[in-house]
Structures are given as structure tokens and as C-alpha cells.
């Protein structure tokens, strides 16, 4: 689920629609229309997303092994336990490491790639398609492939030996000192395509005349991008950063299928920790889920306040003009 949600940090639905809705006759009929149109989505969403999440929140206050009835209410004990577990604190640390590394490394890479792919380039369609391949791949399949590639007797080590770098060969996913960075490499490989997709979409909104104007002024291509395109790409970048943060905080699938959080918790994330512990202690796992939600929400709100203030009520919610 991580990283796959192209959407805006929208606490605001934007300004009220201008127009004639207020003078339309019959508020009764208007409410009926609203109910008929929004009702089905709301019912499905509340039933299958909100209700389970509320239930998870309820479980989090119980000492519960998933088999017995919910009857041992323990208040905030699960929460206290979580913050006293060094493994969980390490998982939080790993999540934030990935958050920061993603922004600092994947962001610039994605912008550069999108700028390249947005210009006339022989074989552009092919290049674009190739770059999106990892993003479209199922996590299960990607994890299976990387496990094969990175195993001690796998392709990567064999390749290193072939080019005379055998001293670099090592069990990539088994070394706790580098596993997190190997994981980050896999994540970058997997999700860079999505970042490029977002950036490309943003670039469609940058008027071509601006490039031309810059070109006529004699500015170099990269210079033109830096001074002209990049500032206009601002809202897009800020949205990608938001999505990347949420995705990195909730990272689960790729880690689960590749390392299960190991070795020695080196690649553990909050969501993996939640699943591992929630298997035999759903009450405790639910407390982790709530913590994960609160951290995501806090980070999202802080980020919106700091970075996206000028986009609020506009940018992602106003739409193209």
C-alpha cells in the first residue's frame, strides 16, 4: 500500500463551488441528490475502512490474544509497553531514516528523470515504459526477485565476481550494518517510477512558452529548468513529498516480503513490527496501529502547516484552470 497513493494532503475540499447551487429550488431535493450521489461511497467507506479502524482502536486497550473474548481492559498499558520496547523505537527510527532518505535522494532523482523524459528524446516512450516497470510490479514478485538477486549465491554477487569485484560480494540482506540501505535501494528502485509519474504530470502544467522564452534568452537548458520550471513545479514537489512521507511511514509490503524486518531488526518498520506482534497479540498490534496512525497524522498536519500553507485551499484541491 505504501507509496502507491497519488493524492493530495487534503484537509480542505477547496472553496465552495461558485455558481447556482444556492438558488436551486428545493433544499429537500438537493439533499436527496447529495445523499444519492455521496451515500454509496460513504457507506462502503465507513463500513469497510472507518469501522474496522475504530475496532482496532478499541482492541488496543485490551490485553488480548485474539482467541478469548475481549475482557481484560488494561487502559494505556499496550501504548506504554510499545514506547518502552527498544525494537519499536528502532523501527520508528528506521521509518524516519527512510522518510528523510527518500526525500533527499528519490526526490532529486525523480525530478531530473522527469525533466529528461519530458523533452524530445529518441525512444522516449520506451524509456518511460521501462522506468515504470518496477512500480507496476506486485510487491510479492519484486520481493521474490530481489531475494534471488541478492542472495549469497545470487546474480549480484556473481556479477561482481565476473567483473573482478569479488571482495564487494556479500550477503546483502544479511548484514545488519547495510541492510537498511540495501532495503532503501530496493524501495528506490520500486517507487521511483511513481515519483517520476507525479513529476511528469506536474510538468504538463508548465507552459512550454516559458522554456522557449528562456531558450531565446540564451539560458542553458539546465539553467532554464532550474530558474523557470522548478519553481513552477513547486506544488507538485510538495505533494510528492507529502505522499512519500506517508508511504515511508506506513511502509510494509516490500519489507515484509524481502526481509521481514530482519536481520536483527535492521530493516524493521512500524507496520512490520505491528504485524509481527499483532499475530499473537492483536490488542498490542492494534495499539501499534493507532500509534502509526497518530504519527502519520501529526507529521501530515505539521508538514501541511509548514510547507504547504500556500497550497492550502488551492493547488491540489482547486484543480487545473
Amino acid at each position: 500500500m505504501a507509496h502507491t497513493t497519488p493524492a493530495g494532503p487534503a484537509v480542505s475540499a477547496g472553496p465552495a463551488p461558485a455558481g447556482r447551487s444556492k438558488r436551486r429550488a428545493g433544499t429537500g431535493r438537493r439533499w436527496l441528490e447529495i445523499a444519492v450521489f455521496a451515500g454509496p461511497a460513504l457507506i462502503v467507506f465507513v463500513t469497510f475502512v472507518i469501522v474496522p479502524v475504530i475496532l482496532a482502536a478499541v482492541y488496543s486497550f485490551f490485553n488480548w490474544n485474539g482467541l478469548t473474548p475481549l475482557e481484560r481492559f488494561i487502559g494505556f498499558d499496550n501504548y506504554i509497553e510499545a514506547f518502552n520496547d527498544p525494537d519499536f523505537l528502532q523501527a520508528i527510527g528506521n521509518n524516519f531514516t527512510i522518510v528523510i532518505a527518500s526525500i533527499l535522494i528519490q526526490g532529486p532523482l525523480a525530478i531530473a528523470a522527469a525533466l529528461l523524459l519530458n523533452r524530445k528524446l529518441r525512444g522516449r516512450a520506451f524509456i518511460r515504459a521501462a522506468i515504470f516497470v518496477p512500480y507496476v510490479l506486485a510487491e510479492v514478485i519484486a520481493g521474490l526477485s530481489w531475494n534471488l538477486l541478492l542472495s549469497p549465491n545470487g546474480f549480484v554477487n556473481a556479477l561482481l565476481e565476473m567483473v573482478g569485484l569479488e571482495e564487494w560480494a556479500q550477503p546483502w540482506l544479511a548484514n545488519p550494518d547495510i541492510a537498511l540501505w540495501v532495503m532503501f535501494w530496493i524501495l528506490t528502485w520500486k517507487y521511483l517510477g511513481f515519483a517520476i509519474l507525479i513529476m511528469l504530470a506536474g510538468l504538463q502544467g508548465v507552459p512550454e512558452e516559458l522554456h522557449e522564452a528562456a531558450a531565446i534568452d540564451g539560458a542553458g537548458w539546465w539553467k532554464a529548468q532550474w530558474y523557470v520550471t522548478l519553481p513552477l513545479l513547486g506544488p507538485t514537489i510538495r505533494i510528492w513529498v507529502f505522499l512519500s512521507i506517508i508511504g515511508s511511514l506506513q511502509l510494509f509490503d516490500m519489507v515484509w516480503v524481502t526481509t521481514r524486518g530482519g536481520p536483527l531488526n535492521a530493516t524493521n518498520t512500524m507496520a512490520v513490527y505491528m504485524i509481527v506482534n499483532g499475530q499473537t497479540r492483536p490488542g498490542y498490534g492494534s495499539a501499534i496501529a493507532v500509534i502509526l496512525f497518530l504519527i502519520s497524522l501529526t507529521v501530515a498536519l505539521v508538514y501541511q502547516r509548514l510547507a504547504m500553507r500556500r497550497d492550502l485551499g488551492g493547488a491540489i484541491t482547486r484543480g487545473v484552470r
Partner: peptide, 22 residues
């Protein structure tokens, strides 16, 4: 006390479904 998760679900699901206006 002795809240069964199934009962809880049934309750919450029922209230969610009650939102079904039409």
C-alpha cells in the same frame, strides 16, 4: 466487561449500514 468483538462489530456495522439513507 466481556465485550465480544463479534458483538461490537455487529453493532458498529449496523450503525454504518443505518447510514444508508435510501
Amino acid at each position: 466487561n466481556r465485550l465480544t468483538s463479534r458483538g461490537l462489530i455487529a453493532g458498529l456495522a449496523a450503525s454504518a449500514l443505518a447510514l444508508g439513507l435510501v
